[in-house]
């Protein structure tokens, strides 16, 4: 939603010099700079940068994602390649190219962690996107329209809530087959429930705000009110919830993998790696600790980022 605004702003800047009431050019230029800096998203960015914990977390997440997706190309071993010379878990060494050692099957641990990271990040993002799309649509419709629409949608949510999560996912997996990407969608289908409730609550409080009334008096249609007035105002909550959902989804995925419903070996994820490592933690604690370190770092960072974003996106808190 930031994009079209920027376009308008550019046009405005262009027009500024034509208007007779902005004769003092130098002054209006100064004012322009001032204005440019004060736009909502830029000022939110500035506040985010000022929040050290959130900023470092964001950088760390980006760094982790970068390493996970680009790193494998620079390693001499791939994640499913077995080093027949080191068929047992071996400690790290620089000489044989296993920088973090190998697992019990002689596969390079670093390569597997990076591959696992790719899967975990993908699951986290895709599943959360699905959850956001459904959750925001359903929640804002229910909250804004109210009445029977609200009743029907929320009863559906209630029914889905009482179906046990695992049962639900297992059914979905059986129906759709064990497709890797379908799993994301399956998880997303579960996660949207809470999302929709949060969005509905927020929308209901917003609906009675005066600025919604004033938009209606200005002739805005319901669609416009939802997209221009409601959704931008709940975006802060949504973003925070997203950053909290991503780690949740990553954890859920690792649990599914543990049950044999998630990624199938030799493909792996952080969760799968941890459960593998847990089985051998008495012999080689390394295979548990290192993936767990990656996972918890990522989860921590997402949480810090979520908090930081919430503070940064609320313009009234200044």
């Amino acid at each position: 939603m930031a994009r079209p605004k920027d376009e308008v702003r550019l046009k405005m800047d262009y027009t500024k010099s034509f208007f007779p009431f902005n004769t003092k050019n130098s002054k209006s230029l100064d004012a322009l700079k001032d204005i440019e800096e004060r736009s909502l998203w830029t000022s939110a960015m500035q506040r985010l940068i000022q929040n050290k914990a959130a900023y470092i977390s964001a950088l760390l997440i980006l760094f982790l994602a970068f390493v996970c997706f680009v790193g494998p190309y620079f390693l001499s071993w791939s994640y499913d390649e077995i080093d027949w010379d080191l068929i047992e878990a071996t400690p790290p060494s620089i000489n044989n190219g296993h920088f973090l050692g190998t697992d019990s099957l002689g596969r390079d641990l670093l390569a597997r962690i990076l591959q696992g990271g790719q899967v975990s990040f993908q699951v986290g993002l895709l599943a959360t996107m699905v959850a956001v799309l459904i959750g925001v649509t359903v929640g804002s419709l229910a909250g804004f329209l109210g009445g029977w629409v609200d009743q029907v949608l929320m009863r559906i949510v209630d029914i889905l809530y009482v179906i046990p999560l695992m049962f639900f996912i297992i059914i979905l997996m059986v129906i759709f087959g064990r497709n890797f990407y379908l799993m994301f969608i399956a998880i997303g289908f579960v996660e949207w429930l809470t999302m929709s409730r949060i969005v509905r609550g927020q929308t209901m409080t917003l609906r009675h705000k005066e600025f919604i009334d004033s938009a209606r008096v200005s002739g805005s249609s319901n669609t416009r009110i939802i997209f221009k007035h409601i959704i931008p105002n709940i975006l802060g909550v949504v973003v925070v919830y997203v950053t909290l959902t991503i780690p949740q989804v990553i954890l859920l995925e690792s649990f599914l993998s543990f049950l044999g419903l998630g990624v199938q070996p030799p493909m792996t994820s952080w969760g799968a790696l941890i459960s593998e490592g847990a089985r051998e933690m008495e012999i080689t604690p390394r295979t548990l600790i290192i993936p767990a370190l990656f996972l918890s770092t990522a989860l921590f960072c997402f949480n810090f980022l979520g908090d930081g974003l919430r503070d940064a996106l609320d313009p009234r808190d200044r």
């Binding site: 605004k5 405005m12 736009s39 909502l40 705000k209 005066e210 600025f211 009334d213 004033s214 938009a215 200005s218 002739g219 805005s220 249609s221 416009r224 221009k228 007035h229 931008p232 105002n233 975006l235 313009p315 009234r316």
Partner: peptide, 19 residues
């Protein structure tokens, strides 16, 4: 309270025009 906190002044004032 009668102004949308996420909109700029120009967006707020031009809302009737948009409609």
């Amino acid at each position: 309270a009668s102004l949308n906190p996420r909109m700029t002044v120009s967006e707020i004032i031009s809302e009737p025009l948009e409609n």
